[in-house]
Design a protein around this nucleic acid. Structure first.
Lengths: 269, 269
DNA sequence: AAAATAGTGTCTTTCAGACAGTATTAA
DNA sequence: TTAATACTGTCTGAAAGACACTATTTT
């Protein structure tokens, strides 16, 4: 029971503020595709602890004054960092809860519980540096040297603050998995896109090349994944090639049958 | 960034206790199979708000004094309610984070953020009533009249407090989904179990009957799902029938290929 | 014309599900 | 002996992946 004046441990009228102070924040793992590579939005810390290191955008949840719901808080943090309005370009961004991180000591100063959100965005403008944070940038996730155990390889230049390497690694695994069972790859695309563009999303997130012909047939065979616009691109590929047909996201909320990642035999046990 | 003295909104040395008080709790959706039906552990509230209604077991996270990690807090709440020790019978219980619920107004008295955990347990003893809560009981989930939208059907006798119908519905959907892709159905079974017992878990969680022959062959064909003990049960079925072979949980962490729920065509769009 | 890219046809293998059949046990 | 339960064999259709092929466009 989430009772503040819980009869089990506190008398009536008891105020948890005087008891066990816990701060609640939201952090956002915002992912996008730029130059065919997966990027994450990071901000550079200007003050200790972890000054000079990079972190996920985030901040306090407004608890009482202007109380906001958790997804609202995540959208607000994202808007503040990208400089976009939540009604405009950010309205098309997919936002879902990733998980909550609350290990004692994850912030060296006091107890902080952080609710992490995961965002899938089409290509967005470069974030405005200098408004809230010392710096902010879309960063290729490959350059962060993330390990499965939630750390970073030695020698990686951009070090992540707090437990943000763990949170980001969890977000990436969630994104990879979501692409298998849901049509959320379309959330990385503009409103109209081609099958090869969609394939580029899968290749960037999964980090492996897919067979163009089989991918094409597979996407069209899944009911509700994409729907045709009847249009094609204006031009073919840069170095030659046919013009591609344009599609919109369909109405399916799950892919059936799913689009499973190849070569997972190794990772399963 | 989850900084308590965040440079963006608060000066150095600022104490969030004086600022925006938010309480953090954990709630546990503990599931088990009893009499071939899925049950959830509920406690009955003795005091307002929602006095007389049923709720998920839970309570405050110990934030500073005896600071504990979130999974620890969930295990502690489960232990307090079942009367079992976390080292003993509860050590075999699978515990995973489900999600965090923090809508303003979900607790009528103040702002409470609740981190929900999901537990899969083999059959456990009846909880001890009267220690912490007014009453506690394993309750068949079918008797709660849960709706997909997070409510309860009118006429359901056991009403759930707060947003616990929503949390429980989310937990059930997570459990149903986990059974498809992971071997966690074994977490509902004793250390040694038969294929028909495992099938009963699937049938209880999914709420549909499965073809015994095809299920049997499928389970044995997935590498690492179960491993044989070489033993059989002492007796056959109550009304006759062959003795079943006994298996242990295998070392697979994912099922490949997965064991998909039948008849999902309807729910997908 | 050559190279690149989009898109289709076809074959093989795997696997889910239907269904029938065998093996073993309690009543 | 009968009914119930455990388990196995076999067929069919769906779908994934390999590979070859056609279509269209840029250089």
């Amino acid at each position: 029971m989430q009772m503040p004046e819980d009869e089990r441990r506190a008398p009536e009228g008891y105020d948890p503020r005087d008891y066990d102070p816990v701060a609640v924040t939201v952090d956002v793992v915002a992912l996008t595709i730029r130059d065919r590579a997966l990027h994450v939005l990071l901000v550079r810390r200007g003050v200790p602890p972890f000054a000079g290191m990079w972190a996920l955008p985030g901040g306090f949840v407004r608890g009482v004054r202007d109380a906001e719901d958790l997804p609202e808080a995540a959208a607000r943090e994202l808007a503040e960092e990208t400089g976009l309005s939540t009604e405009g370009a950010l309205a098309r961004v997919h936002l879902e809860q990733l998980g909550t991180y609350g290990a004692p000591g994850r912030d060296p100063r006091m107890r902080v519980i952080s609710v992490a959100y995961l965002a899938f965005a089409p290509e967005l403008p470069e974030p405005r540096a200098g408004t809230d944070a010392a710096d902010a940038a879309w960063t290729p996730v490959d350059a962060l040297g993330l390990t499965e155990s939630g750390g970073q390889l030695p020698g990686t230049t951009r070090r992540l603050a707090f437990d943000h390497a763990r949170i980001l690694a969890d977000g990436l695994e969630r994104a990879r998995s979501k692409l298998e069972y849901t049509p959320l790859a379309t959330a990385f695309c503009p409103p109209e896109f081609t099958i090869p563009e969609l394939r580029a999303v899968y290749e960037a997130v999964w980090g492996e090349e897919l067979h163009p012909g089989n991918f094409h047939r597979k996407v069209l065979s899944v009911p509700g994944f994409v729907e045709s616009t009847g249009q094609t691109t204006e031009r073919g590929g840069r170095r030659g090639g046919r013009r591609a047909r344009l599609y919109r996201a369909g109405d399916a909320r799950l892919l059936h049958p799913a689009l499973l990642r190849p070569s997972r035999e190794d990772t399963i046990r």
